Amino acid sequence: MREKTVSSTGAPPWFVRPAARSWRCAPAPAEVREFHASLPGHAPTPLRELPGLADELGVGRVFLKDESARLGLPAFKVLGASWAVHLLLAAPARGPVTLVCATDGNHGRAVARLARLHGLRALVFVPRGVHPDAVAAIAAEGAAVTRVMGPYEEAVRRADEAAGAPDTVLVQDTAWEGYETVPGWIVQGYSTLCAEIDEQLAAAGAAAPGLVAVPVGVGSLAQAVVTHYRSRTATAATALLAVEPESAACLLASLTRGAAVGVTTGETVMAGLNCGTLSRTAWPVLRAGLDAAVAVTDADSTRAAADLAGLGVSSGPCGAAALAGVRAALGGDGAGERRDLLGLGPGSVVVLLSTEGTAANPHSPTPIR
């Protein structure tokens, strides 16, 4: 096993483990994709080819999965929340409930939207640092919003306490001991995004990706990405890169330590990634199947978002973190070694997961039956 950590001057905070490409796991259930296809207004989100970025990065082709408009919302989160709520409400003798969650923005809005579509109430806890516009968007879905003065982890604790009331259910996208089933369903829901990428790359005549870059908060989306690519022989050589804010790099710290550790978070424009503790179920999957992790600055993410906007792509700071991370990994001091460790050459295909747009999609919701 060859592992390396770099954080010296001129190089990004970085961890790499090429042996991860040999790890295998079971795939997500096939019925998840079928469920999403049955939803009113569902359509695959675009996979956009960006030749200028391929030239900049010195690779064959670059594609960006654009999650700026997914089922009427400006982020991918509704994929996981919709599948989890579907399974929760399918339970025998399940009556009307209040859906409860904590959020840095997009997950809470997705849960609030689903509550409204199903005729249910929603209670959403929001930590400090979330933009007022994001809070207002959650409230506009009809949810009761509680502001928490502490970090994301405190908001999760408050949501868990609130979900102890009668006729409430917690819909949280991070797992801890004793709370793993619903987060597992949410991770399964994210698999639709990866399945779409496979089909879209094939339609574009592109090879399997040499590198997929995914932004990381608590690690649930990254868990879904690792599960997808490590469960298929066709993507055995695909390297998977996690990207975090430097001020909230709990995955990078955990990989470096070799054990899950929490970090104290600071302020960051990447509010949706501002998490100091990994999901309990995500950590073992990421430890085994993730090739590399890199941390980026707010300036890196802001520049990436502006550059994507110039290319006609709506991407918020969290979504643009994928591009910022690939730039950090493939450029600057030590770039040649990092490319070699990732197995990338001049003909490689790179996929960026842009997980959110910059503004809400204006389309009105259609009730789910």
Rank of each mutant, 00 (worst) to 15 (best):
S68K: 02
P44H: 08
D167S: 10
L290G: 03
E141T: 00
A260I: 08
L57N: 06
L286N: 01
P365G: 15
A222Q: 05
S254N: 12
V169E: 13
D300L: 06
A234P: 03
E3I: 11
A359D: 14
A75Y: 13
G184T: 05
A137L: 14
G345Y: 11
G119H: 02
A195D: 07
K77Y: 07
A321P: 02
A139W: 05
G347L: 09
K77L: 04
P40V: 06
D167V: 02
N274R: 15
R113T: 15
L341P: 00
A102Q: 05
Q223M: 13
A93T: 01
A359W: 06
A203L: 05
F63G: 03
H36D: 07
L286F: 08
V351H: 06
P44D: 12
V169H: 06
R327H: 08
A260G: 10
E246V: 14
V135I: 15
A112W: 00
S314R: 07
T277C: 14
V214H: 01
A204N: 01
V97W: 00
R21S: 11
V225I: 11
A324Q: 01
T227S: 13
G80C: 13
A143D: 10
T233W: 10
A137P: 00
T238E: 01
I138R: 08
L73P: 03
V85S: 08
P18D: 11
F35K: 00
R327L: 11
A102I: 11
A43G: 09
S301Q: 05
C25V: 15
G262T: 14
R17M: 10
C101E: 08
A213Q: 04
I138V: 13
T103Y: 08
Y229F: 15
S279T: 08
G150Q: 10
A195T: 05
R147K: 12
C101N: 06
L286T: 04
A175G: 11
P127N: 06
G142R: 09
E161Y: 12
A248M: 09
V294R: 04
G119I: 00
L342D: 07
A299S: 10
V126P: 02
P92H: 05
E49Y: 05
G150H: 03
A259M: 09
D160L: 12
G108C: 11
H131N: 10
T168K: 04
A122W: 08
F15I: 05
D55I: 01
V6P: 00
A236T: 14
V350L: 04
A271G: 07
D173T: 09
D66P: 07
L120W: 04
A139P: 03
A175S: 15
V97Q: 02
E244M: 09
P183N: 02
A320I: 00
L120V: 06
T358R: 13
L193S: 01
M1W: 07
L353I: 14
G72Q: 13
P44L: 07
A213T: 04
E56L: 14
L39M: 09
G334C: 04
T98S: 03
A91E: 13
V269D: 00
